[in-house]
Design a protein around this nucleic acid. Structure first.
Length: 278
DNA sequence: CGATTATGATTAA
DNA sequence: TAATCCTAATCGC
């Protein structure tokens, strides 16, 4: 259940547990058995996260490319680890920690060149140190598709998934169906900042959680607290109105159409004029 | 027990 | 657009 924040968090955890260490590698499924055998006992050099892609670099050359899709996940087991479930694609074990990879559509060896090719087709990652925001804006300016669709396009920017697209657009009060090209420079700048802020915060947190401090109810924080503004919610946290959900780019989109007005023809024209006159 | 749903993405037609 | 890959939890019968 991963967007870029989860992948980055996993990469960091793998580096903490595995980097520089000799690792026992195994697989409960046949389809990774050969690869596991080849890796078994090698030294894990480092994990690298880009967008929703994860790479494991091993001493001696092999690179493992993992993409978790919608269902894939890594589970950390304390010693002694339980016997692997039949669905374990790849198990990475040291004396101190065991990582089980379950359900990824992609877990494969790649060459350095293939690795570079994967990275080359990804847009800037809002979680990287100095992402090229201008490149993202430039792409969005010439995209007629709805902004909520464009945010999922990994060639434009990488790492945003269905939760962050809905949550960021809500926070900035932008209707998901507005063409990406209709956003003003100010809106683009704020949206990018919101995405970075939300995702960055969600790397540090144990679970994905987008509600900003200013919107959190006062008092103690409790584990059962609401996590999202609109994603899979019924009622808007800010105005109390009903959250609408509808399919968009093959996924379920959520929005509060009071807090995220769809500009009328007139408003849209005014926005466009002010965008052009800057 | 089957249907449904879930933070994704590629390939074929 | 449709079919495909991948797993687990939940709900209704």
């Amino acid at each position: 259940m991963p967007e870029g924040n989860t992948i980055l968090r996993l990469a960091r955890a793998h580096n903490r547990d595995l980097a520089g260490r000799r690792v026992a590698v195994s697989a409960a499924q046949k389809r990774f058995a050969k690869e596991a055998e080849r890796l078994d006992g090698r030294v894990f050099e480092r994990a690298e996260a880009r967008g929703k892609h994860l790479f494991h670099h091993w001493r001696g050359g092999p690179i493992v490319h993992v993409h978790l899709g919608r269902f894939g996940d890594f589970y950390r087991r304390d010693p002694p680890p339980p016997p692997p479930r039949p669905s374990v694609r790849m198990r990475l074990a040291t004396r101190d920690a065991t990582w089980d990879l379950i359900g990824p559509p992609t877990c494969e060896f790649v060459t350095k060149e293939e690795c570079a090719a994967i990275l080359a087709r990804l847009g800037p990652d809002p979680l990287s140190a100095r992402p090229d925001a201008e490149r993202v804006f430039e792409r969005l300016r010439r995209t007629d598709a709805p902004i909520a669709h464009a945010l999922l396009d990994q060639r434009i920017l990488s790492g945003v998934g269905n939760i962050f697209r809905a949550e960021a657009l809500f926070v900035d009060g932008i209707h998901p169906l507005r063409p990406a090209s209709s956003l003003t420079p100010g809106e683009l700048g704020r949206l990018w900042a919101t995405v970075r802020r939300m995702m960055r915060r969600s790397v540090a947190q144990r679970r994905t959680f987008t509600i900003e401090p200013a919107d959190r109810p006062p008092g103690r924080r409790q584990s059962g607290a609401r996590s999202f503004y609109v994603y899979q919610e019924e009622q808007c946290l800010r105005c109390g109105g009903r959250i609408r959900s509808f399919p968009l780019s093959g996924r379920t989109m959520y929005a509060c159409e009071t807090c995220q007005p769809r500009p009328s023809g007139r408003t849209a024209a005014r926005l466009k004029r002010s965008a052009g006159s800057r």
